[in-house]
Structure formats: C-alpha cells, structure tokens
Amino acid sequence: MKRLIHYKGYAVAPAAQQLPNGLFAANLTIEKTTAPRSHPYSFDALDYFFDEEHALAYAFRWGRLWIDSHR
C-alpha cells in the first residue's frame, strides 16, 4: 500500500511491502516539490513490521525526520 503526503515542500510517499515471511517492509520515497526536475530519494526496508499500518507510520515518521534534518 502506498500513500502520498506533503510535508514542508516535499512529497513523502511511504509504502509497505509484504514479504514472503508475512512481515511488512517500510519503504519510502521523498521528492522536493518546489524544485523543477528534482530527483527522488528512495529508502527501502527501513525496518520490518508485523502490521502494514505500523510500517507506513514508521516510514512517514522517518521521512519527516529526514526532511527536518536536511533543511
């Protein structure tokens, strides 16, 4: 499942990928929305969760922290 959230000039797209063992990998794509032709940053398997919603929430929190530390 993927979602798109806007945060401080960035598009944050957390995603949860279900793995064969039943866990969900927290993945994330971040792209600056204010710059023309910006290149997205992709982060795969930030951590693993038993629940899809927890994976999505973690990826979004991680993305906000990344954005705040790179501004």
Rank of each mutant, 00 (worst) to 15 (best):
S42H: 09
L28K: 00
W62G: 04
A15D: 07
P36C: 03
Y48N: 07
R37T: 05
A16M: 04
P14K: 01
H39V: 09
A57L: 13
A26V: 00
S69P: 03
F49Y: 15
W66V: 03
R61M: 09
M1E: 14
A55K: 00
F24A: 03
A55R: 00
E52C: 15
T29S: 02
A35H: 11
F49M: 11
E31N: 14
D44Q: 08
D51P: 08
L19D: 13
D44R: 05
N27L: 01
A35G: 06
D68Q: 04
R61P: 04
A59S: 10
A59H: 05
H54L: 14
H39F: 08
F24R: 00
A13Q: 03
A25E: 07
Y41M: 09
R61S: 13
E53N: 15
Y10C: 08
F24N: 02
D68L: 10
A35D: 14
G63E: 01
L46M: 06
A45F: 08
R61K: 11
H39E: 15
E52S: 15
V12C: 09
P36N: 04
H54V: 10
G9Y: 06
A25D: 09
Q17M: 03
L4S: 11
L19I: 04
T33H: 06
A26H: 03
N27W: 01
H6V: 02
P20A: 10
R61G: 12
V12A: 07
R3A: 12
Y48I: 06
P40I: 08
K8Q: 13
L46Q: 07
R3K: 15
D51F: 10
N21R: 06
L28V: 03
A57E: 14
D51W: 14
H54M: 12
P14L: 02
G9A: 11
L28Q: 01
P20C: 05
A15R: 03
D44W: 04
G9R: 09
I67N: 05
E53Y: 12
I5K: 12
D44G: 08
K2W: 06
R3S: 14
H54W: 12
F50W: 15
P14C: 05
A11K: 13
P14S: 06
G22Y: 10
F43H: 06
L65V: 02
A26T: 00
A57S: 15
R61W: 08
F43T: 04
H39P: 03
H54Y: 13
K2Q: 13
Y58M: 14
I67W: 07
L46E: 05
S42P: 02
R61I: 05
A45N: 14
D51K: 11
E53G: 14
Q18H: 12
S69H: 10
A16W: 00
S69K: 11
L65T: 04
M1W: 13
E31P: 02
P40K: 12
H54F: 15
P14V: 00
H70T: 11
Q17D: 10
K8L: 11
